[in-house]
Nucleic acid binder design. Structure first.
Length: 405
DNA sequence: TAATGCGGGCGTA
DNA sequence: TACGCCCGCATTA
């Protein structure tokens, strides 16, 4: 099939839907066209009222993937899988990074995980997070429909997302993974305590010996606060936040509060296929594009405010295959709050992630700019507001700045 | 642990 | 009847 080269929303209409089979069917039709001459390239960010016909061989289509945070919705029709958009998690403080980027986290799909997520803090300013629900379909969430029919997978989207794009799944997983890694090496972690105990006994064990991971991958979990500023020179990925607290995020529609910014998220720029791989060159479909050192994907250009957490690829070209470890979201709840000098010291994971693989590999170290002492926090942990009990791995930064020995 | 899919059930228009 | 949504369960990674 053609595998249309233009994958943006507008292009979707032009390239995919222009073919007769695309416009004449509805996902609810009893019979869907089987004389499809051209299937579409997988659409990572389907938006508006679009339809696509994917090959049943398309792995992403098989998995009903979307970079939007879509949850399964029961439509009481086993033949048609329906998913509704969860929106995007934003910072209640509407904080911005140094580069003026907004915080757009990916809502957890699992209800429990999502509730848990909303108790956490903004990775940029530690402010409370807020779920900005999608109401792009007549006040209801945008819905996606998937239907397998013969050798094709039919996709139909209803509604236009009225919120920014969240992190992609890979980005969210990478962020959690790094947070978890940080947790594992936080000063309060059992492992580290044990190491310190051993060290206190032996009096000679080097940090390098005790923490091989720390040295083999020094930046994968701990980076100084101003790390990103240095990286920004060579990377187009967003860097550390300035924590410039602005008026609360306000929804453009006014219903849920909106950003007031131009709804760039509604634009879907073309994803381009790389002829040799047959995959789009989006940030996720093309591993090379995942590297911050590479040209940002179109979606990145379209969403300058979106956080682009760049996972370390493992050579797996499957754009949606998770390559990060299990969730590290607990990090925030398990960490000790820190009083920073200045307005706010950006929590670490964000800087690390936004530094991306290149950042991680750079080996660059800088100094954290806090001056106030640590505050114990174990007693603060609870189910209440995230600002009380949540703090992103701040003690990891301390750990980094004040190594064991 | 979270993502995902399935299906029962309920409320609303 | 269609739709949205909640819930629990099972499977998978």
């Amino acid at each position: 099939m053609l595998k249309g080269a233009n994958d943006g929303v507008m292009e979707q209409e032009d390239s995919a839907s222009q073919h007769g089979e695309m416009m004449t069917w509805d996902i609810n039709d009893i019979k869907l066209p089987q004389d499809v001459r051209q299937t579409d390239w997988f659409q990572e960010w389907p938006d508006s009222y679009v339809k696509h016909i994917y090959s049943s061989e398309d792995k992403n289509a098989q998995r009903h993937h979307s970079s939007w945070a879509m949850r399964n919705t029961n439509n009481h029709n086993s033949r048609i899988l329906k998913k509704s958009c969860l929106g995007v998690v934003v910072c209640s403080n509407d904080c911005s990074t140094l580069e003026g980027r907004k915080i757009y986290l990916r809502p957890a799909i699992c209800d429990k995980a999502r509730q848990k997520q909303q108790r956490k803090c903004c990775p940029n300013c530690n402010g409370p997070l807020r779920l900005l629900s999608c109401r792009g379909h007549g006040g209801y969430p945008v819905t996606n429909f998937w239907r397998h029919e013969g050798q094709f997978i039919f996709f139909q989207s209803k509604g236009a997302h009225d919120h920014p794009r969240p992190e992609t799944k890979l980005e969210a997983e990478a962020r959690r993974s790094i947070q978890k890694a940080q947790t594992a090496f936080s000063p309060s972690s059992p492992r580290l305590k044990r190491i310190r105990e051993i060290e206190s006994v032996t009096g000679a064990m080097s940090t390098r010996e005790a923490l091989p991971l720390l040295h083999s991958k020094p930046n994968t979990y701990v980076l100084p606060a101003n790390f990103g500023r240095h990286l920004s020179k060579s990377s187009q990925e967003p860097m550390l936040g300035s924590c410039s607290v602005q008026p609360p995020y306000q929804r453009a529609t006014g219903e849920d509060g909106g950003s007031g910014e131009a709804p760039t998220w509604s634009r879907s720029l073309p994803l381009r296929r790389t002829p040799n791989t047959g995959r789009p060159c989006s940030g996720h479909d093309n591993p090379a594009a995942n590297l911050p050192c590479a040209t940002p994907s179109p979606q990145h250009w379209a969403h300058p405010g979106t956080q682009h957490i760049l996972p370390v690829t493992k050579g797996d070209h499957d754009p949606f295959r998770p390559n990060a470890g299990p969730s590290g979201d607990e990090c925030c709840e398990e960490k000790s709050p820190l009083a920073y000098s200045g307005s706010c010291l950006p929590p670490l994971p964000y800087s690390v992630l936004r530094g991306g693989p290149c950042a991680m590999a750079s080996g660059v170290h800088h100094h954290c700019q806090f001056s106030a002492p640590l505050r114990g926090n174990k007693g603060d942990k609870g189910e209440g507001g995230c600002c009380m009990d949540l703090n992103y791995c701040n003690d990891d930064m301390i750990f980094n700045l004040y190594p064991l020995r």
